[in-house]
Design a protein around this nucleic acid. Structure first.
Lengths: 203, 203, 203, 203
DNA sequence: AATGAATGAGGCTTCATTCAT
DNA sequence: TATGAATGAAGCCTCATTCAT
């Protein structure tokens, strides 16, 4: 592809992301995408096999920085506090998810959009759960995470909570900075209960 | 409505719910609904103004038992354990959500489906967050939930987690009975971290 | 189907036949068909799965009288003259082929239109070649057709000639009544050559 | 045209012929032609005004050898046998027609492809009917063809038969060598009938 | 109330052709 | 001359909805 071609491709992806966020995938028309991208409708099909493929390209495009953002998490084990480290990462993810979420939502709501096997590996959140699980395991070795905790299940729980919070429009759009998010992560790390039977001592 | 009419209405709703779960809202056709319900296409419009209304009726229909499922929770404060009480309720919700979730998903993914103002009050999960918050507050008064915990935020966190777990097809379909769910609730109550600065001893 | 439905179906088929003859299959638009039939475009798809199916239905519809036209031929063996009998049948076929030919042409020119296996048995000319072969065999038994003649090959030859004549716009549209047609059949029966080595005697 | 240009032109024509034979004219895309010819899509329009012109060029290209194939026929009058001479020519034509036929078919099936007036004169089979008619007339003078035979009509009949046989996929692809073809020509020359009223004895 | 044929707007996609490089 | 990205008109088909029966 030439520079011109790459530019067009990028504009199509950006237009798609923006439109999905605005009106939802089901209401995004190829016509609208073309108009928003400033190209002819037919041009879309020089760059993507069909509407669905463009949609995936958009998801993957947006996902890259998200995956990258959690890659460094495991190396932070032992530094700062567990809560601080997780909160930092989750905030990052929350921020980036703003773009990704509507796209991901559509995929969940419409089985037809199930990703082709070849691309599933790079789909959203493939990296983060793993990175978070690795981090929790590392902290577990250092005694800063409870021994009974299953790092994998815990990572899924945490991300599920983030997803749930992001989806439900309880608050405005500033989830990343919201008190709700930090409170949630705090509950995840420290729990809400007071369990006398479990004397949590020092690490 | 005659008896026959009520029956038809119910069959249309059930057919809708089933189809949404099977193929996703985006792929549910009024034709399919009519066929599944065993009526003619035109009949649908005798019972519902349009497809969207039928969809809402289905959501409300499925939401009722979910709302009921948490109603008794606040009265359980002080009995059993916090973890046990929450787990029981969450499992119930997970079970009941199987029908509702796909419908709710569609509503979130497609702005066009934003509920008409008149019906918004009865929309999903209006009851549960409140009931759970009431319960947590009651337990807080009893000293079984940490004082720093905000009952409302905590209730939202917990349900967000449930929602996230239910939506993402991480495991099989039996979330209600899964280890993942109980582990998640456990982390919510007890936390994953070992916080030296907070010697949880007193009640 | 109701009477109303059958009527619509017939009108669609007639419109298709007419349009194919006028502009060729490749240039027939579903829109044009609908307009010509006096129905909405969508109606077409209540009666036929797609454009191709409508096309087939039209072919089969037109083919029926053609097949019928040759069915009585074998029973004429021994009556009149061979030339007369064949000419009569061929003229009939030429007449009827006026509608069918453009449809058949399209099918030959476009491999995409190859008939589904289920319908192939009823495709054009399945009957005629057989009927003509039977007739020639019967005449052969009566000594009015040369013993060296292979009835099947001969039937194919004759129909091929008819097809070729019909396709090539050598003359106007009145092939059935043309001198060319009768001359051709005459050559087929009597030959153009004068072969001294083959003393054709009495029957 | 430079040498390169001529080569490209030839490759485009060959690619077109090959594609029409493989997938049918209706399914030949300018894109496919360009790919098959190993050039860019735009290049096609440097050598031909449009797709239709390329198509005609291909027809003419393939028609040349066919026209040539019958040129010597008239001079063979009186030599060998009438059947032998015609069979030889028809076999040649059958062989050569393999490329031309699909192209010609498309032209017949699609009125849109009616040749521009300027090129009509050189259209397919302009030579053969004439050559064959000349040959038959010459043989008629020699007494080897029946006096009642109209050479022009007979030539058309014979070629129509060839066309019909070639178009209909009755047998495999080797019509030129098939028994069907030789039998057909034989019927044309000697007839299938035994006509008592016409004692063919003299030359 | 029920039926199901008919409607028709509009979506996705194709593809011959153009044009800047 | 060649390239190939871009164009945009137009086709086939879908499907929620209407309406005569």
């Amino acid at each position: 592809m030439t520079i011109r071609g790459d530019t067009t491709r990028k504009r199509l992806i950006d237009a798609t992301t923006a439109l999905v966020r605005e009106v939802g995938y089901a209401n995004v028309r190829t016509r609208s995408i073309a108009v928003a991208a400033g190209v002819a409708e037919g041009t879309l099909y020089r760059h993507f096999a069909d509407k669905r493929s463009l949609f995936y390209a958009a998801v993957l495009d947006r996902n890259a920085p998200i995956v990258a953002a959690t890659e460094t998490l495991p190396s932070l084990a032992g530094q700062g506090t567990v809560l601080g480290n997780l909160l930092e990462v989750i905030r990052n993810l929350a921020q980036l998810q703003q773009d990704l979420l509507p796209l991901e939502q559509a995929m969940i709501a419409d089985p037809t959009l199930a990703p082709p096997l070849g691309e599933r590996a790079q789909m959203p959140l493939e990296g983060p759960p793993n990175d978070i699980a690795l981090y929790l395991a590392a902290e577990q070795n250092l005694g800063r995470v409870r021994a009974e905790c299953d790092p994998t299940l815990a990572a899924i729980s945490l991300l599920a909570m983030l997803f749930g919070l992001a989806v439900h429009p309880v608050l405005g759009n500033d989830l990343a900075e919201s008190e709700l998010l930090s409170a949630s992560v705090s509950y995840f790390v420290d729990g809400v209960g007071v369990s006398p039977a479990q004397p949590k001592l020092t690490a």
